[in-house]
Design a protein around this nucleic acid. Structure first.
Lengths: 342, 342
DNA sequence: TTGTAAGCGTTATCAG
DNA sequence: CTGATAACGCTTACAA
């Protein structure tokens, strides 16, 4: 049995409650006893039992992280380590710990969330992925449990605190970059249609074309079920079109890497024959060959701000629901070139 | 205040302890009351308070994960999501939850570990990276706290339960594959010299050459400080050698991707002019261009077994320390070719 | 088979 | 400023 607050109290010849006050750094306590108690704590190597504390204080100083289903390929995306880093940094500053949850299926994840919420293991929750028809969101809203989502929630977006990029602008900016380089035939490659990112980015792409007076073509819009097999064919078909695109906007670096591979197999040179711009700017973008011009969406900040907002939500109960937008910027590399034919 | 065991007891007209027994699925309890209690629980939407339970039972059903320092580039390696997936799967089967820890510095991480261990937030710990002179290991050993490490611990390897690949063989097999393809001039590209993986894999490389009667050359051994800047030059120098290697073994797919990039800039074709084989076989290997022949080290299993061993360690106190070796196998893709010059 | 009651290690509410 | 003492919600002997 470990050393408890009582042991410390005994050694310091004070009451347990006094020790507790010293730990909490309570104002009304004489410097003398404070030192005495601290000395006793050091001497015994005291460390508070957090379960007991949580039980008594009804707070855990812990936040729950809900990852996407681990079976999902998205899970492999380097997006997550980075966002985690941001979350952790802010959590650490505010002395919060992290409790994690994944699962093979959505039901499994929901069960885990219920368990950590009702089990009082966490004070709030960060959702790292929002999907259409999300049971977890539904559950948390119903219980009025503090949570924030990273990305835009598919439903009730204005009742839910979330941190996101302005994905419409992200993609509009990306597309405009291509347009400025002289491209008119620009195709869009996105992921699953019921991801909000995809939806927003698609609309940004469409806006940019519209603004530039370039007609939209259905054949220029592809939704691969995220990398792998399917993508290959889709890209091949795209390149087989007689008015083959001269440029591609891709919603994700990881996906762009796959596209790059397919293009290579088809013997199409990037950026000489076709330009590619993608989004997120993960480490991969730099390593790809050619290195990818990508829209940096400041993933770290996404995590940091989410963490920060959650803590605010937890600590000041009346906190209004917020929508926090993280900035983005173009990072030019080698995958785009000017179109100078005619 | 949420619904407690007492509320259930009252509704079911039994004692709180009876409810507790039903939850624990205690044997000595009549089917009648069991049903009665279960009904009451359902009716009230009862969910146990895990902090209270942990406090009373001195067990948390939670394991702590210690990630590498988040500043570290290693953190970005797709290795982690996969290993996490494995850990989670087994944890889930055994009804364990996951508590996570990262930090910017080693001290920060150690502090977080101390906090979760002494704070009794976890029953055991999995270390996802072992470094030389690891304070965390030192701490855990001293306290005799259950933990397992993924990878080989730098010190006390035979007193520490760990799950690892046979990295010497992994790299020996990789190198032999190249030798079978007719290569004699094979260079080694590894990461930080004080990572056990690097050390083991280097020695596997050396063994393979020795066995084949191929002389070792110092100029053929490179330790990039993991991708980025440094690596570029190192590879360039390597390729500037007059007896330039015809093949490369690389310790990590991510790193290999960087090498591929550099090679491309130098205008050297893979696999025509040089063959590359790497290790780990993460999703990336498939996506690279050319796709990478890689040694699959079954990362998922690494995580799964670590999780399993930790739980054994926690649940049966007398458990002997174990060393678990996960198998590996060659996955051939497009980055290696037969050497047929003369 | 079930109930009673004593912890588990804190915090929090009163008094003093 | 400090000390009792009652929660917090559950488990677990020990009785019955």
């Amino acid at each position: 049995m470990a050393v408890t607050i009582k042991d410390v109290a005994k050694l310091a010849a004070v009451a347990p409650s006094t020790v507790s006050r010293v730990i909490a750094d309570n104002s009304r306590i004489s410097e003398a006893t404070k030192q005495k108690v601290k000395k006793a704590m050091k001497e015994l190597g005291y460390h508070p039992n957090l379960n007991a504390r949580s039980l008594a204080s009804q707070s855990t100083q812990t936040m729950g992280l809900v990852m996407p289903s681990s079976g999902d390929v998205v899970f492999q995306n380097p997006f997550f380590p980075t966002v985690l880093q941001g979350i952790n940094e802010c959590a650490h500053e505010k002395k919060y710990a992290l409790h994690m949850t994944t699962g093979k299926s959505d039901d499994e994840i929901l069960a885990a969330v219920v368990n950590m919420v009702q089990g009082k293991r966490v004070d709030g929750v960060i959702l790292l992925n929002s999907r259409v028809d999300d049971k977890v969101i539904e559950y948390l809203m119903e219980r009025e449990f503090p949570f924030v989502v990273i990305g835009k929630p598919a439903e009730h977006a204005d009742e839910i605190t979330h941190v996101d990029n302005d994905n419409v602008r992200v993609m509009r900016d990306a597309t405009e970059h291509l347009i400025q380089l002289g491209h008119h035939q620009i195709a869009f490659i996105g992921g699953s249609r019921d991801l909000m990112v995809t939806i927003d980015r698609l609309s940004g792409y469409q806006q940019a074309l519209k603004n530039a007076g370039i007609p939209l073509k259905d054949e220029y819009i592809i939704h691969e079920e995220f990398l792998r097999e399917g993508g290959q064919e889709a890209v091949s078909e795209l390149m087989a079109l007689e008015d083959r695109p001269t440029a591609l906007v891709v919603v994700d670096d990881f996906m762009a890497l796959g596209v790059l591979g397919t293009l290579d197999e088809l013997g199409i040179k990037v950026p000489e024959e076709i330009s590619i711009i993608s989004c997120n700017n993960v480490l991969l973008a730099e390593l790809a060959k050619p290195s990818l011009t990508s829209m940096d969406i400041n993933i770290f900040d996404l995590g940091y701000q989410a963490s920060k907002s959650l803590i605010e939500l937890i600590e000041n109960c009346g906190e209004p629901t917020k929508r926090i937008i993280i900035s983005h910027q173009l990072v030019e590399r080698m995958s785009c070139s000017e179109l100078d034919e005619k």
